[in-house]
Simulated scan of single mutants.
Amino acid sequence: MIETIADKFQKEREFISNASHELMTPISILQSKIENMFNEEDISDELKVKLLDMQKILNRLKTITKTLLLISQIENDQFIKEDEVNLADLLQEIYDEISIRMEEKDISFAVDISPDTTLKGVNKFLLFNLFFNLVNNAIKYNREGGEIRVTEETVNKNLIISVSDTGIGIGAEELPHIFSRFKKFKRSLLQDSFGLGLPIVKSIAGFHRIEVEVVSEKDRGSTFKLVIPAGLVKK
């Protein structure tokens, strides 16, 4: 029974990987065709609007495909874990990339992380994606004039990194399912979301043996806690 279940999971991972690879080619071809049509001299304004709509749809499809491919690569151990990553520097990189979205909603961003906190035996690209998705979610579901805080503490020799927001929170009935792929919740109905951000977080965390805990209260905000094993922390 165990072998059968394992085989099914492996086949699912292979299917997602193969399908994602195959989808990228026609998507890229269609994007090129649309771009070429934009360059035609006699194109009407009405057609331009329709082409822009088509381009938006293709961009969303490309995002979904790339995300599924990333999850598949993580689950198939296709990344090397040999980087050293200073967390304060990593969070600064994320802030530099996404700060304009915080400014649009007047959200403050506070980081209380030691400048010496460094992880070892990790993959920087994946960790960037993990923290980027957590901060991006904290912006997306936050209120105007809200706050995002990133803090650290040590519990039982493990490093705990918490990403907290003052947003709309997650209902108790939704919490058990937030890491499910393509699962849409009430809080995401008005967002341009595909339900893949948190599954990416979970996959990357699992790849690094990092546990993810969530504490949330509706209309009060959420806190995502990363429980990082002591073995990943550089002394």
Rank of each mutant, 00 (worst) to 15 (best):
E3W: 14
D7E: 10
D7P: 06
F9C: 10
Q10G: 08
I16P: 00
I16G: 00
I16F: 13
S17G: 10
E22W: 13
L23V: 05
T25P: 01
P26N: 11
P26E: 10
I27C: 07
S28T: 15
I29Q: 11
L30W: 07
Q31A: 04
S32P: 07
K33V: 09
K33N: 13
N39A: 14
D42N: 09
I43L: 08
L47C: 11
L51I: 03
D53E: 09
K56Q: 12
N59S: 13
L61R: 10
L70R: 08
I71E: 06
S72N: 05
E75M: 12
F79K: 05
I80G: 04
L87E: 07
D89T: 12
L90H: 02
L91Q: 04
Q92N: 08
I94R: 02
Y95H: 13
E97T: 09
R101A: 11
R101T: 13
M102E: 15
M102S: 12
E103D: 10
A110N: 15
V111I: 08
S114Y: 08
S114K: 10
P115H: 04
P115S: 10
V122E: 03
N123R: 07
K124L: 08
F125A: 14
N129R: 10
L130C: 02
L130T: 01
F131E: 05
A138H: 01
K140F: 08
N142F: 06
E144N: 15
V150S: 00
E152C: 06
E153K: 15
T154V: 12
N158T: 07
N158H: 08
V163P: 04
D165S: 00
G167D: 03
G167A: 03
G169Q: 01
L175Q: 02
S180Q: 11
F182R: 07
F182E: 13
K184D: 12
R187P: 04
R187Y: 12
L190D: 15
S193P: 01
F194W: 13
G195C: 06
P199N: 04
P199C: 03
A205H: 06
A205T: 07
G206H: 04
H208I: 10
H208Q: 07
E213S: 09
E213Y: 15
E213F: 10
V214A: 02
V214F: 00
S216Y: 02
S216P: 05
D219C: 05
R220Y: 11
S222P: 03
G231C: 09
V233Q: 00
